[in-house]
């Protein structure tokens, strides 16, 4: 549509072009405004007030909700738990996903598609269903895991896998890993399979086999995919809600609370909408920070 090579009408065309661009961008911007910018503005605005979902009056408290949040033990527990899930998930999901992908890519000859399907399967189950499945498996009274642990002569945790505050967050982390490692594996496997096989042969002749080939050839070849995987995992780790809501509800006694569930608790159970908004803004800032980081790294790569 651009006819910029015609010098006489150039300025007129430029204006028309700008108008066209604007017209084409408007629907997207409008939708973004309605579904993103305006809600975000409302949340930021709301975070400056003290009010509940059914309150008639909003009391302006300035940054009071933020001060309250930073002085709130549970807020820090929730943030810490988010970080545990983010870092733990990167190690477990991306780490194991890479290992499984490497094994499937090079080691396993028989039933590769079947294995891939089995490992990927948890990904297509909703988090809520996954949570319910694991509630049954981890049940301290009738759950099969306890039976297995007892069967090999060990003692399962007395307070239950999800009831013991010292381990419950790690158990939830494990469930998340069970659900998403397959997805990471498939993502990374796609990357691995795009690496030409003769590169590995060249590397073998150069003296890089096994772990050295993995380190010097495989990992650098899938660097960009790993960055994407880590980013997906990080964002997912900060956004996590459903899995925890279903399995522990943030308990026992807030020990698995994350920002997502704590926002829900404050907003809908306790009715501190302003406080919940303030935590949401903190979460938003973290997300924006991560987005910025992603843009930066992807431009570098």
């Amino acid at each position: 549509m651009s006819q910029t090579s015609r010098p006489r009408s150039r300025s007129g065309n430029l204006a028309a072009e700008k108008l066209t661009y604007a017209a084409m961008l408007t629907p997207a911007l409008l939708l973004l405004a309605v579904f993103v910018f305006i809600p975000v503005a409302l949340v930021i605005y709301g975070s400056l007030f003290d009010f509940g979902l059914t309150s008639r009056d909003w009391t302006f408290v300035g940054l009071g909700n933020y001060v309250e949040a930073f002085g709130d033990d549970v807020f820090w527990i929730a943030l810490r738990n988010n970080l545990i899930i983010v870092i733990g998930s990167i190690v477990l999901q991306v780490g194991f996903g890479t290992l499984l992908a490497a094994v499937l890519d090079r080691g396993v000859r028989l039933g590769r598609t079947l294995m891939r399907t089995i490992i990927f399967a948890p990904m297509v189950i909703s988090s809520v269903a996954v949570g319910l499945i694991w509630l049954i498996i981890l049940d301290p009274n009738v759950g099969p895991l306890n039976a297995v642990v007892k069967g090999v002569g060990l003692t399962p945790p007395k307070l239950g896998w999800l009831g013991d505050p010292s381990i419950s967050i790690w158990v939830v982390l494990g469930i998340a890993a069970w659900q998403y490692t397959g997805f990471m594996m498939v993502l990374i496997l796609a990357g691995l399979q795009a690496v030409p096989k003769d590169i590995y042969q060249a590397a073998a002749l150069d003296g890089a086999t096994g772990l050295r080939a993995f380190w010097y050839i495989t990992l650098p070849s899938i660097r960009n995919i790993l960055i994407v995987a880590i980013l997906i995992t990080t964002v997912g780790g900060f956004k996590v809600f459903d899995l925890i809501f279903v399995t522990t509800g943030g308990g026992p006694a807030n020990s698995t609370q994350v920002l997502g569930t704590y926002i829900y608790l404050q907003a809908f159970n306790i009715g501190e909408m302003g406080f919940a908004n303030a935590i949401s803004v903190v979460l938003l800032l973290i997300a924006v920070g991560l987005g910025w980081l992603q843009l930066k790294t992807s431009r570098k790569a």
Binding site: D198, A202, A204, L205, I217
Partner: peptide
């Protein structure tokens, strides 16, 4: 023997260069 220990070097049909290394890196990798 392992490929690298045989004292042979091979040139592949599809070049098989390491895409993430520079030319110098490729040549010096062995």
């Amino acid at each position: 023997e392992e490929p690298a220990d045989r004292g042979v070097a091979m040139v592949f049909q599809n070049y098989a260069l390491y895409p993430h290394m520079t030319v110098a890196g490729n040549m010096g990798f062995g």
